[in-house]
Protein backbone atom coordinates (compact mmCIF):
# COMPACT_ATOMS: atom_id res chain seq x y z
CA UNK A 1 0.00 0.00 0.00
CA UNK A 2 1.45 3.33 -1.03
CA UNK A 3 -0.70 5.43 1.30
CA UNK A 4 1.02 6.81 4.37
CA UNK A 5 0.12 5.02 7.56
CA UNK A 6 -1.31 7.48 10.03
CA UNK A 7 -1.28 7.23 13.73
CA UNK A 8 -4.86 7.35 15.08
CA UNK A 9 -5.59 7.94 18.74
CA UNK A 10 -9.05 7.20 20.15
CA UNK A 11 -9.76 9.10 23.37
CA UNK A 12 -12.26 7.41 25.67
CA UNK A 13 -13.51 9.66 28.45
CA UNK A 14 -17.00 8.31 29.18
CA UNK A 15 -18.29 5.56 31.44
CA UNK A 16 -20.01 2.59 29.75
CA UNK A 17 -23.82 2.04 29.66
CA UNK A 18 -24.94 5.45 30.97
CA UNK A 19 -24.36 6.90 27.51
CA UNK A 20 -23.68 5.34 24.10
CA UNK A 21 -20.18 6.88 23.67
CA UNK A 22 -18.17 3.90 24.94
CA UNK A 23 -19.83 1.37 22.64
CA UNK A 24 -19.78 3.74 19.66
CA UNK A 25 -16.07 4.29 20.14
CA UNK A 26 -15.39 0.57 20.30
CA UNK A 27 -17.35 -0.03 17.11
CA UNK A 28 -15.48 2.74 15.29
CA UNK A 29 -12.15 1.35 16.51
CA UNK A 30 -13.03 -2.13 15.24
CA UNK A 31 -14.11 -0.76 11.85
CA UNK A 32 -11.09 1.56 11.63
CA UNK A 33 -8.67 -1.21 12.56
CA UNK A 34 -9.64 -3.00 9.35
CA UNK A 35 -7.84 -0.31 7.33
CA UNK A 36 -4.22 -0.97 8.23
CA UNK A 37 -3.72 2.13 10.31
CA UNK A 38 -1.68 2.51 13.45
CA UNK A 39 -4.34 2.63 16.17
CA UNK A 40 -3.91 3.48 19.85
CA UNK A 41 -6.56 3.79 22.53
CA UNK A 42 -6.44 6.11 25.51
CA UNK A 43 -8.65 5.76 28.56
CA UNK A 44 -8.88 8.74 30.86
CA UNK A 45 -11.47 10.43 33.10
CA UNK A 46 -14.56 8.19 33.36
CA UNK A 47 -13.31 6.21 30.34
CA UNK A 48 -11.25 4.07 32.73
CA UNK A 49 -14.55 2.58 33.98
CA UNK A 50 -15.04 0.93 30.56
CA UNK A 51 -12.39 -1.64 31.41
CA UNK A 52 -13.47 -2.72 34.91
CA UNK A 53 -13.55 -6.48 35.44
CA UNK A 54 -16.70 -8.41 36.26
CA UNK A 55 -19.29 -6.36 34.38
CA UNK A 56 -22.67 -8.09 34.36
CA UNK A 57 -25.49 -6.30 32.59
CA UNK A 58 -28.11 -9.07 32.85
CA UNK A 59 -30.21 -7.15 35.38
CA UNK A 60 -30.21 -3.87 33.43
CA UNK A 61 -31.12 -5.54 30.13
CA UNK A 62 -28.27 -4.06 28.07
CA UNK A 63 -25.61 -5.73 25.95
CA UNK A 64 -22.46 -6.37 27.98
CA UNK A 65 -19.72 -5.25 25.60
CA UNK A 66 -16.83 -5.54 28.05
CA UNK A 67 -15.73 -8.93 26.56
CA UNK A 68 -15.24 -7.18 23.22
CA UNK A 69 -12.22 -5.21 24.49
CA UNK A 70 -10.34 -8.51 24.69
CA UNK A 71 -10.74 -8.84 20.89
CA UNK A 72 -8.78 -5.64 20.25
CA UNK A 73 -5.52 -7.60 20.05
CA UNK A 74 -6.96 -9.62 17.14
CA UNK A 75 -7.64 -6.29 15.42
CA UNK A 76 -3.97 -5.27 15.71
CA UNK A 77 -4.69 -2.76 18.46
CA UNK A 78 -1.61 -3.18 20.60
CA UNK A 79 -1.36 0.12 22.44
CA UNK A 80 -3.87 0.90 25.17
CA UNK A 81 -2.94 3.78 27.45
CA UNK A 82 -4.56 4.21 30.87
CA UNK A 83 -4.13 7.46 32.77
CA UNK A 84 -2.87 6.91 36.30
CA UNK A 85 -4.41 10.06 37.79
CA UNK A 86 -7.84 9.16 36.39
CA UNK A 87 -7.69 5.75 38.07
CA UNK A 88 -6.61 7.23 41.39
CA UNK A 89 -9.36 9.87 41.46
CA UNK A 90 -11.86 7.00 41.11
CA UNK A 91 -10.38 4.72 43.75
CA UNK A 92 -9.20 2.24 41.11
CA UNK A 93 -5.93 0.55 40.27
CA UNK A 94 -4.79 -1.49 37.26
CA UNK A 95 -5.81 -4.65 39.16
CA UNK A 96 -9.45 -3.59 38.85
CA UNK A 97 -9.19 -3.54 35.05
CA UNK A 98 -9.20 -6.27 32.42
CA UNK A 99 -5.83 -7.56 31.32
CA UNK A 100 -5.56 -6.90 27.57
CA UNK A 101 -2.99 -8.63 25.39
CA UNK A 102 -2.05 -9.12 21.75
CA UNK A 103 -0.31 -12.06 20.10
CA UNK A 104 3.01 -11.46 18.41
CA UNK A 105 3.01 -13.61 15.29
CA UNK A 106 6.71 -12.96 14.75
CA UNK A 107 7.51 -14.23 18.24
CA UNK A 108 5.74 -17.63 18.16
CA UNK A 109 2.38 -16.04 19.06
CA UNK A 110 3.70 -14.83 22.41
CA UNK A 111 1.08 -12.91 24.38
CA UNK A 112 2.19 -9.37 25.07
CA UNK A 113 0.62 -6.72 27.27
CA UNK A 114 -1.37 -4.04 25.46
CA UNK A 115 -2.05 -1.90 28.52
CA UNK A 116 0.36 0.84 29.52
CA UNK A 117 -0.17 2.91 32.65
CA UNK A 118 0.83 6.51 31.92
CA UNK A 119 0.83 9.77 33.84
CA UNK A 120 -1.20 12.79 32.76
CA UNK A 121 1.97 14.42 31.40
CA UNK A 122 2.80 11.29 29.40
CA UNK A 123 -0.78 11.20 28.11
CA UNK A 124 -0.41 14.78 26.92
CA UNK A 125 2.68 13.76 24.96
CA UNK A 126 0.85 10.77 23.45
CA UNK A 127 -1.95 13.08 22.29
CA UNK A 128 0.56 15.52 20.90
CA UNK A 129 2.27 12.76 18.93
CA UNK A 130 -0.90 11.48 17.26
CA UNK A 131 -1.68 12.44 13.65
CA UNK A 132 -5.42 12.23 14.26
CA UNK A 133 -7.35 12.22 17.53
CA UNK A 134 -10.91 10.87 17.75
CA UNK A 135 -12.73 11.95 20.87
CA UNK A 136 -15.50 9.98 22.55
Amino acid sequence: MSETIKNFLYLNRRAPYGTIYAWESLEVVLIGAAFDQDVSLAFLDDGVFQLTKGQDTAAVGMKNFSPTYAALGDYEVKKVYIEKESLEERGLSLDDLQHLTWEDEDDDYAEKDSIHLVTRAEMAAIMDGADVVFSF
Binding site: P16, D56, A59, M62
Partner: peptide, 14 residues
Protein backbone atom coordinates in the same frame (compact mmCIF):
# COMPACT_ATOMS: atom_id res chain seq x y z
CA UNK B 1 -29.12 0.69 42.60
CA UNK B 2 -27.62 -2.83 42.62
CA UNK B 3 -28.23 -3.77 38.96
CA UNK B 4 -26.33 -0.63 37.85
CA UNK B 5 -23.41 -1.50 40.17
CA UNK B 6 -23.29 -5.04 38.73
CA UNK B 7 -23.44 -3.81 35.13
CA UNK B 8 -20.37 -1.66 35.83
CA UNK B 9 -18.39 -4.42 37.52
CA UNK B 10 -18.58 -2.75 40.96
CA UNK B 11 -18.94 -5.20 43.81
CA UNK B 12 -20.84 -4.27 46.96
CA UNK B 13 -17.62 -4.49 49.00
CA UNK B 14 -16.46 -1.36 47.19
Amino acid sequence: LGPDLQARGLSEER
